[in-house]
Design a protein around this nucleic acid. Structure first.
Ligand SMILES: [Mn+2]
Ligand SMILES: [Mn+2]
Ligand SMILES: [Zn+2]
Ligand SMILES: [Zn+2]
Lengths: 145, 145
DNA sequence: ACAAAAAAAGCAACATTGTTGCAAAAGAAA
DNA sequence: TTTCTTTTGCAACAATGTTGCTTTTTTTGT
């Protein structure tokens, strides 16, 4: 128990250090939320679950920092409620390199990173050049079927 | 000149009638914005371009009505600025049926419906079932290359 | 372990965006 | 034109996001 906790804590520190981020309470807490979470988190979720302890502004700034560092990525949705999820690909300060697709459940609204499913290549019309592809599938998830 | 204007006006009326919507000034004006526009419109754009004449709330409600009727569809983006574009597929009150992909220019931020490019089929993990696929490509558009 | 320097957090004030209820106005129907 | 129905505008509010500045925390160097 104490060992597991120590290990989890070490992991947080390691990730923050790797990204040249100072170790602070809010960064540890918010990063922990992502690590212990299966799906993605909306800003509101994070604010509710970490925000009792931290200022709203701190949550905004921490998420922004994490996105800039390539620790989390943004999942665009049609409901004006951006979700964030841990990056599992080769993302860094230089740029994101997430190529997986996302799944949003119509029923429970859980948002999943389907890390094993790669965004397909698209042939664009003449004159357009693509840099990044975002793909979100809506439907019923494994827990709601 | 007068003829062209009359024709455009007729077209507006026709679309609204087809969707069993009453003909009102705000619906005509906002629908017109979409018809004379190449790319998609963010809510803010519409508010700026129609909002001097109409209340903000009316713009929200009109867009909501258009989405419900299948006249326009929502394009999800990562910047908390939902864009709307005319539906060109078989959308109706019953449901949307848009299968094309979207393109957002990194430079000019114009959002295009690439109506001819169909969203690819995706093989989902066991237990997941897809209903709809959203695909947005980011890059440089034909006007900015 | 301590002091100095740097970075982050908290706070307050503000801006933008989105929602709701209700009265007034506009549109459709007769 | 009159009546009925729908839509709009308005006001008030809620939620979300941003900025400047002060205080606190964290790091660094001794
Ligand atoms: Mn993801
Ligand atoms: Mn489209
Ligand atoms: Zn589900
Ligand atoms: Zn462009």
């Amino acid at each position: 128990m104490k060992q597991a906790k120590a290990t989890a804590h070490t992991r947080l520190i390691k990730i923050l250090k790797q990204n040249s981020l100072n170790i602070t309470e809010s960064r540890k807490k918010i990063l922990q939320l992502f690590l212990e979470q299966d799906g993605a988190l909306a800003h509101g979720d994070i604010e509710k679950r970490a925000g009792e302890k931290f200022d709203r502004v701190t949550v905004y700034r921490t998420l922004q920092t994490f996105v800039n560092k390539g620790i989390v990525h943004i999942i665009p949705t049609a409901d004006n409620a951006i979700r964030y999820a841990l990056c599992k690909d080769d993302c860094s300060e230089v740029g994101h390199d997430d190529h997986h697709i996302h799944f949003v459940c119509d029923n429970c609204h859980t948002t999943y990173c389907l890390d094993d499913i790669v965004t397909p290549d698209i042939r664009l019309p003449k004159g357009y050049s693509g840099r990044h592809v975002e793909m979100v599938v809506e439907g019923i998830c494994k827990n709601c079927k």
